[in-house]
Computed example of a mutant assay.
Amino acid sequence: MNPSLELSQFNYELPQELIAQSPAAQRVESRLLHLDRRGSLHDRQFVDLPSLLRPKDLLVFNNTRVIKARLLGRKASGGKVEVLVERVTGASTALAHVKASKSPKAGGKLILAGAFAATVLGREGELFELEFPGRVLDLLEQYGATPLPPYIEHAAGQDDDERYQTVYAREPGAVAAPTAGLHFDQAMLEQLAGLGIAQAFVTLHVGAGTFQPVRAQRLSEHVMHAERYSVPPETIELLRATRAAGGRVVAVGTTSVRALESAALQASAAGAPGPIEGDTRLFITPGYQFSWVDALLTNFHLPQSTLLMLVSALAGMEPIQRAYAHAVQSRYRFFSYGDAMFIESP
């Protein structure tokens, strides 16, 4: 990492009204800002994406599934609590953020959704280890709410349960959606396949840490949050075949980038029959040398966020600053339910 990089270099002014509070009427109806490899900007629509891809390209999607991770309740002693499950660690255990007027102690009971009691087993840093009286995923599905990002001001409803989830979501475990994938519907996926554009999947369970601000002024002092990922052997084979054929690896979302590049760091295991998997704290900033990713489809990211730093690493700091200024001036919709950007590496 470049030791001279500072947080203030990744700021921009965003009018509040450009933060999308709801998705487009149809998934594919978003706008698409195209930053080409020469650094030129093109205003397009998301339905134009197939024309920007080539028959030998490989699209890599994150197939994580958002769980209904938010629960309201009270402590056995009576105080209100809000629980956000960060990671399911076992059939009946999970690590969670717990908001309460006073932190619960080990052995304490949390009465959640008025339906069941979870036991506090202890703490791991800022997270609490909880034991549920049954399968965590089943109880969350029955009693939990979809954990919308903090900048979306309405409570999650049935529409959010569907639209804050990709159409190809398979592996439950995320508490935030891989939002670049929200623009695809099944018809678009089938259209791309018909054009000879291959598709592969990775899994990275997005954590609430994706919304945490970077607090260190020097980026070299920032400690990245951990997220669980897996890259299956069939995806590794497709990556190699794509490169051998002269195609591009196009990551759908920054989470796909982090999974692919984290797997590349474990390249010695790439010949193994099983998946490459583990926890990743990979922090991608300008100067990073990408191993797999040639292009990226992404949404627009928060000022001073690690994701803005990642896209700046791929395209360059000046082109990204120019692209974001253009997006604000052109009134693109920002963040999770907002418009998309297609970035080609120089």
Score class of each variant (00 low, 15 high):
R27V: 07
R170M: 00
G316K: 10
L314F: 12
G144H: 05
Y164C: 05
A94R: 04
H301P: 01
G194C: 07
R218N: 10
V250T: 00
G207I: 12
S30T: 15
E129T: 12
A340Y: 05
L282V: 11
G274W: 05
Y337G: 03
D43A: 13
R281K: 13
A177C: 06
A244S: 13
K56T: 15
G207R: 11
H205K: 08
L148I: 03
Y12C: 00
G157Q: 04
T203R: 03
V136W: 05
K56H: 15
V98Y: 04
Q321P: 00
K68C: 00
I320C: 03
T179D: 02
V47D: 02
F335S: 03
P275W: 05
T179R: 04
I320P: 00
A91L: 13
Q158R: 07
T280H: 13
A91Q: 14
G338M: 04
E124L: 01
A115W: 02
K99S: 14
L140F: 11
A313K: 10
R65C: 07
K105Y: 05
A20W: 09
P303K: 09
L18T: 06
T235Y: 02
D57W: 11
L84D: 09
A313E: 01
D36F: 11
A106F: 00
K75M: 14
R31S: 02
Q21G: 10
V231D: 06
E131L: 05
R170Q: 14
P23H: 08
I197S: 08
T210H: 09
E129L: 12
V85T: 13
E86H: 14
L204A: 08
E237D: 14
G209V: 02
D43T: 08
A244D: 10
K80P: 15
L84Q: 08
A180H: 06
E129R: 15
Y324T: 11
L112W: 13
A208I: 01
G39I: 09
A244H: 03
L5F: 12
L139R: 08
F116E: 05
I19V: 15
G209S: 06
A155T: 13
F128M: 10
T203I: 01
L14S: 09
L41Q: 08
Y143W: 15
T306D: 02
R135K: 15
G90K: 05
V249M: 09
K68D: 01
L182P: 07
L137N: 15
A176F: 14
V83F: 03
E124Y: 01
V167G: 04
Y288Q: 09
R228D: 04
A25E: 15
A245F: 07
P149H: 14
R228Y: 03
F283P: 03
T254N: 09
F184K: 09
A100P: 01
R258W: 09
Q321W: 03
T285F: 02
R31W: 00
D294C: 10
L7M: 14
H154W: 02
S101M: 06
G79I: 06
R228P: 03
A270E: 08
I111N: 04
L219K: 08
A180Q: 05
R87P: 00
A325S: 13
S30Q: 09
G181A: 00
Q9I: 00
F300W: 05
A100E: 04
G247E: 12
T179F: 05
Y337N: 06
L14E: 11
E171T: 14
D57G: 10
S312K: 00
H222Y: 08
S330M: 12
E141T: 12
G144I: 01
L192N: 12
D161I: 02
L58P: 02
G253I: 10
S256K: 08
P273W: 01
G246A: 09
